[in-house]
Nucleic acid binder design. Structure first.
Length: 532
RNA sequence: GGGGAGGUAGCUCAGCCGGUCAGAGCAGCGGACUCAUAAUCCGUCGGUCGUGGGUUCGAGCCCCACCCUCCCCA
């Protein structure tokens, strides 16, 4: 994305996760999206761009209302509790540095939602009509055809649903088929990966139907400004968070500066809402469309999609408590091509932790820092050039940066880790421990130690978006902090400039970056066993 | 019911428009080395490419049928 801007203003990058349904129990699927967004935004920050990373919670709807009632509290109290006790802690668990957290029950959101639909209604994009659909009396709500069990039974009650109708307001979605198609034909990367793009385009080609955007049977929601008997249907409320969070309806100037989003990260299950309904809403309002909707795959456990009901939902903390947040972040992005489904297993997680994080990366840091301490009293020798390592670094940095542009997080990580491999190889081949035994070769030893340290400096910068805690420790351990400033301010577009670590930097051996862990107890155990 | 994705070494996966395409990483095995978190480096074993047909001089790669998994729509 070359920004043709000639100004000195740093590019801005606005990225979102979906807002998570507050009533769900947070599992690793939610954390996966959040982590991917966090890594992307950290990378963009290290490009020197102004970044805005948004996440939040979706809090309206009958289900919330009902569970709150069952718990004997108001829906608002119920949401407050879930947000504070369940959702915000997940961000800390996975070490996510979001810039904002929007809740759909906040005034800034509700105001924006009302403003938005008011605009659409005035522009003639809404009309009253009758909605008819399968309705479960037990749930007191309409179901989507896809929600029903075999034979048209309610998935909650297992009882037959009835066809019921109510007066609703409709959004003229059908009016935007052409415009959406034209947009996607002109912007083939606006929905990624390609399979998602194809799905969206063929769905639009089937013809879009107007869609009910309000509900009269629900109380916990944003009231329509012109019809207080109805609330905005939860999706048409939730999607607007991306706009209301950056000022739509409350701070027009800020909104104009920030919108549109560069990337909406979504799970493939909610692709249609983001790639069809949402852009159509924006077209209706005359607003710019998001530059890209990226649909990532499912996390599978034991070959099955995770779900709360099947007990396959794993809490992020279950993994982080054992492996740490860095390993969590690393594993899911490294092991699974972003955009594809991927399987999680404790075995694979353990194997990658050990082989890649501990043995390849962590151990390289140990090798270098021990040798500098042992052979040079912890004082880094003077910079010397190194063709081979410079070239490898240049390539890795460029490959990683290119990969990030297309959200290929796996390749970005592989590029950095490939460089780590090169450096391990370099150390083995140059045999500094032998040089150390020969006074006459002190200069050669200096060179090897410097080149290895300088390579680690670069590796730390490149991996910092993914494993920030470990890289920060390494950064200090290399004595880089004092000379070069905080690692988070190191630019990825400058990382390949050789010779940044200065002579005399204080190198100290730290605790292992990724210590060996105890074997996980009982084979295949833990709470991951697909519980019968 | 319609549409789509996928089934390739023990594991996770690459294989673009058919002709060194039978590959990588991990695991396993053997060797080198000792700075290091028993780490590193090198070498190596390993697959009738879901099943059955077909097209072709030649097919994981094309066609048909079937089996299995998953997704979307109805």
């Amino acid at each position: 994305m070359p920004s043709a801007d000639s100004s000195d203003e740093p590019a801005s990058f606005f990225l979102t996760t979906p807002i998570y349904y507050v009533n769900d129990a947070p599992h690793i699927g939610h954390a996966y999206t959040t982590v991917a967004g966090d890594v992307l935004t950290r990378w963009h920050r290290q490009r020197g761009e102004r970044v805005h990373f948004l996440t939040g919670t979706d809090e309206h709807g009958t289900k919330v209302e009902r569970t709150a009632q069952a718990a004997g509290v108001s829906p608002q109290e119920w949401c407050d509790r879930l947000v504070e006790d369940s959702w915000k802690p997940v961000l800390r668990t996975v070490d996510a540095a979001n810039d904002d957290f929007i809740r759909t029950t906040e005034p800034r959101h509700e105001k924006g939602v009302q403003r938005f639909w008011e605009v659409l209604r005035e522009a003639g994009h809404c009309y009253a009509s009758t909605y008819e659909g399968p309705y479960c009396v037990g749930c007191e709500e309409f179901k989507l055809p896809g929600d029903l069990l075999e034979g048209g039974l309610c998935p909650v009650h297992g009882t037959p649903v009835e066809m019921l109708s109510e007066e609703n307001w409709f959004f003229r979605l059908s009016a935007f088929s052409e415009a959406l198609l034209a947009h996607y034909e002109a912007n083939p990367t606006a929905v990624q990966p390609e399979s998602a793009y194809n799905e969206v385009v063929s769905f639009i080609k089937q013809g879009l139907q107007d869609i009910s955007m309000s509900r009269s049977s629900v109380a916990w929601g944003v009231p329509l400004p012109w019809d207080a008997s109805q609330v905005v249907y939860v999706w048409f409320d939730a999607l607007l968070n991306y706009a209301t969070a950056v000022g739509f309806g409350t701070d027009d100037e800020r909104f104009a500066q920030t919108w549109p989003a560069d990337v909406h990260l979504v799970g493939k299950d909610i692709l249609r809402f983001h790639a069809i309904y949402w852009p159509a809403m924006l077209l209706a309002a005359g607003l710019p469309l998001p530059r890209q909707v990226f649909a990532h795959g499912w996390l599978l456990v034991g070959g099955e999609k995770m779900s709360k009901t099947k007990l396959t939902g794993i809490a992020p903390s279950a993994i982080v408590d054992h492996f740490g947040s860095d390993a969590f972040r690393y594993y899911f992005l490294r092991a699974i091509p972003f955009g594809s489904d991927g399987s999680f297993s404790w075995e694979d997680m353990s194997a990658r932790y050990k082989s890649e994080l501990a043995d390849q990366f962590g151990n390289l840091a140990s090798r270098l820092t021990s040798m500098v301490e042992r052979y040079r009293d912890g004082v880094l020798p003077a910079p010397v050039p190194n063709e081979q390592l410079s070239a490898a670094l240049q390539q890795a940095a460029s490959d990683a940066d290119t990969a990030i542009d297309v959200l290929d997080l796996q390749s970005a990580i592989n590029a950095a880790m490939g460089f780590v491999r090169t450096v391990n190889n370099y150390v083995t081949e140059t045999e500094p421990w032998k040089l150390a035994k020969d006074e006459a070769r002190a200069g050669d030893l200096d060179a090897v130690l410097y080149c290895t340290a300088e390579s680690l400096r670069a590796a730390a910068v490149l991996l910092n978006p993914v494993i920030p805690k470990a890289c920060s420790v390494l950064w200090s351990s290399l004595g880089a902090e004092a000379q070069l400033g905080p690692i988070s301010e190191q630019r990825v577009d400058q990382v390949a400039r050789w010779g940044q670590l200065p002579a005399g930097a204080r190198v100290t051996k730290s605790d292992p970056l990724f210590p060996r862990l105890d074997e996980l107890s009982d084979a295949g155990g833990r709470e991951t066993a697909p519980g019968g």
